[in-house]
Write a protein that binds this DNA or RNA. Structure first.
Length: 499
RNA sequence: GGUCGGGUGGCCGAGCGGUUAGGCAGAGGUCUGCAAAACCUUGUACGGCGGUUCGAAUCCGCUCCCGACCUCCA
């Protein structure tokens, strides 16, 4: 097996991946704050980590994948400027219980994750289910003198943290002095905080605040960042292997998480920090404010001015895999169309492959094919380079097609290598990349009725064609086309796909 | 303003000192009743200006442009 290398945001370099406990891997990924529908960019991050999760398992690791749900504490703006809890705000606006808001968007999130065919995490803990743990962690931080209480709220003391020799900014490269000198007005409003870079661990609730818990300091709620520190510690230990999330969480979220863990446990939480990059649209950040945005639903239905047609979830997933997770990815209509064709082509090859046979004991192309097959793991071991692995898969695809088409002779591939090729396609396409068949013959979820009907129609058309009754044959073809069913006439008969 | 990251052919996207990335589109061809599909072959590139080097898309400097973060964000 090849050596897996991962890009560690802490060192800004690729490092050999060595898990703490031989074949077990602990991975924590920051999940969504459930106050609105999942953002498409969110989906990209979770798809990226889904592939990482899948590939780690493919390498034989037993992975405990923890991805949280943040359902309290995430404020709009800062505490000092009267930031309101995102969930509480939504609850107020929609006149719902906060937990109704949470449930609604958790359901939607799970549905979307399912649509994108991501595997569920091993544990999906919620912040509100871990208030006790968070309170305990605040106590530990206070005990170590790294936090202070002010009017019922508790703040992390960053100057003290630095004074004690810790490196605040270790992940983000942020320097506290620079933070102080920020020209931005918001940051100058210190409010209760003793220092602008301090952040809330516990926030005293206003009387009107709906989400509240009893604590030694006040009736209130935990600060954002804290839930991840305490839940990762609870389920993965004080020190674990991988921590992931979106690039934009580096600061302040992850930086503060590290400070909290160091402050409470005296150790850094994760050894490898992995960050997924942003999804752009037409070269710019997706933002509702200027209309440069698209929801997953709109993307699937085509109901958006940014795209010419709908793209299926697997096409979108494939599109995401064509870029490295650490690069920004630009969503454009053209790029999606290209992805759709590429995805279809790979799926087509998979089908073709399953029908190929070989009786040769040794083939002239065996060595080349074996090398390409091995290349897939080399690609993926290079910081989960799905674009490279996909390119290699396309090269294998060409070989398989050439073998079928006769450009590669019958004795070019041995039965053993052909079998290996079939297995490889299956494993990478479905297990590692997490793609699946969506429409057409043999797609998951088809009940056999559709396939049966289509076979009947194709059979009738074949008779017509055999009798040179082109009128009937073309009528069948054209009518189906209007229903978005495309017939594909090949040497070995006719197949179909729904687009 | 500060801190990072990036600018690759018509489009997307790998590459990180010398060797074809790959996909889509384009061109040519095979197949086909016609068409579509499929398959095969194939051209075009490294923002600009300097420098280091036998050799740079890859390293260094300057410059222009874009993006992210600094404030809720995946």
């Amino acid at each position: 097996m090849h050596k897996l290398q991962v890009f560690n945001s802490l060192s800004k370099a690729k490092e050999d991946f060595k898990p703490l406990h031989s074949d077990h891997v602990g991975m924590y990924v920051c999940g969504p704050t459930v106050y609105s529908d999942v953002h498409l960019g969110n989906c990209r991050t979770f798809v990226s980590f889904d592939v990482i999760y899948r590939y780690l398992m493919h390498l034989g690791y037993k992975v405990r994948y923890v991805r949280n749900i943040t359902d309290v504490g995430h404020l709009e703006g800062d505490v000092d400027i009267g930031g309101e809890d995102k969930i509480a705000k939504k609850a107020r606006l929609e006149q719902l219980e906060p937990m109704e808001v949470v449930q609604k968007y958790v359901n939607g999130f799970h549905q979307m994750m399912d649509i994108f065919n991501t595997l569920p995490p091993s544990i999906e803990p919620r912040a509100t289910g871990h208030i006790m743990e968070q309170i305990e962690m605040i106590k530990d931080i206070l005990d170590r003198g790294l936090a202070y209480e002010k009017n019922g709220s508790v703040y992390f003391n960053t100057p003290k943290y630095i004074e004690k020799g810790y490196n605040y900014g270790i992940l983000s490269g942020r320097v506290v002095e620079d933070l102080v000198q920020e020209s931005r007005d918001d940051l100058k409003k210190q409010g209760e905080k003793e220092h602008p870079s301090d952040f809330a661990l516990w926030i005293k609730a206003e009387p009107s605040h709906l989400m509240r818990w009893r604590s030694p300091w006040s009736i209130g709620f935990p600060g954002w960042h804290l839930e991840c520190s305490s839940m990762s510690t609870k389920y993965l230990g004080e020190h674990f292997d991988i921590h992931g999330g979106g690039q934009d969480l580096k600061f302040p979220h992850h930086e503060n998480e590290i400070a909290q863990n160091q402050g409470a446990c005296g150790t850094a939480p994760a050894r490898y920090w992995l960050h997924a990059n942003m999804l752009l649209m037409n070269g710019r950040k997706m933002a509702k404010s200027d209309g440069n945005t698209i929801t997953p639903q709109e993307l699937f239905s085509g109901n958006s001015s940014h795209i010419s047609k709908g793209y299926s979830p697997m096409v979108v997933r494939f599109f995401m895999l064509q870029a490295h997770y650490r690069s920004t990815l630009d969503l454009t209509d053209e790029a999606l169309q290209a992805a759709e064709k590429g995805y279809n082509r790979l799926m087509e090859t998979y089908k073709i492959l399953s029908g190929l046979e070989s009786t040769a004991a040794a083939g002239t192309a065996d060595a080349e094919l074996t090398k390409l097959i091995e290349q897939l793991d080399i690609d993926m071991c290079d910081d989960f380079s799905t674009p490279k692995a996909l390119a290699t898969l396309f090269e294998l695809s060409s070989k398989a097609n050439a073998y079928k088409g006769g450009q590669l002779s019958a004795d070019s591939i041995s039965s053993e290598v052909l079998q290996k090729l079939k297995d490889t396609f299956k494993v990478f396409l479905f297990d590692v990349f997490g793609l699946k068949e969506e429409y057409g013959e043999g797609a998951q979820g088809s009940n056999g009725l559709l396939d049966g009907l289509m076979n009947l129609i194709i059979d009738i058309r074949k008779s017509a064609r055999d009798n040179k009754d082109w009128t009937t044959a073309d009528k069948i073809r054209d009518t189906l086309a209007e229903l978005s069913v495309q017939l594909k006439d090949g040497k070995d008969g006719t197949s179909w796909t729904k687009s």
